[in-house]
Amino acid sequence: MTETFTPPTRFAVPGRIDVSNRAAAVWQTATITEIRRESPHAATFRLAVPAWAGHLPGQHLMLRLTAEDGYVAQRHYSIASAPDDAGHIELTLDHVEGGEVSGWFHTVAEPGDTVEVRGPLSGFFAWPGDRPALLIGAGSGVVPLMSMLRHHRARGLDVPLRLLVSARSPEELIYAREYGAETTPVFTRSAPEDVPVGRMAAAHVAPLLAEQPPGGWEAYVCGSNGFAEHASRLLVAAGQPVHRIRIERFG
């Protein structure tokens, strides 16, 4: 055992973009301009960030709230909006049970309130719109994938894009009115008539791999750890190369 070790996969590919460290280092004031309900548990918060440096679909930011005594709570959130909306970004947040930050957004926040953000952050999950994209998300895991879908539409990109999105029920499916032919929803608890109920399965993933474009898909998976483990195994079993699966897990 003296030979040089070669990893069995080439996972550690560089990020899709060069990350702007300057933008990531600065906290900026963000003003809530609009709140839209997406589902019983999720709402979209539109923020005006005048000096926003711009982002790529799939990137996230760090957000912080400060109490009067100086106590600070900060969290990472994916950006839901496409990059083209100068000076504005949108976040879609689940109301997490007992969550001090999401709880504030869902029960206190009003247009005009200010919070602080820094970003955009991280290049690994970014999608510049170059490679064919196979997007798989569950619950609010669809948020960064929606930024990709919106970008794809806003720019009229020719590169293929498909979205598999899992939700408990049609009522819980966020962005339901925005999906088109590129999207297949999967419902795990209740579904519209004629739509089967059940977990995402090989039967959902295999057809997408079968119709993969030349050069193959770049796969982006986002959701809870349990979902990410399940979906990534489905992808591997269907033949998607491990080093072309990018995963973002809640935590």
Partner: peptide, 13 residues
């Protein structure tokens, strides 16, 4: 310090 209106946060431990 940029105080967030109405934000109390978790009990301080």
């Amino acid at each position: 310090m940029n105080v967030t209106r109405g934000f109390a946060g978790r009990p301080r431990v």
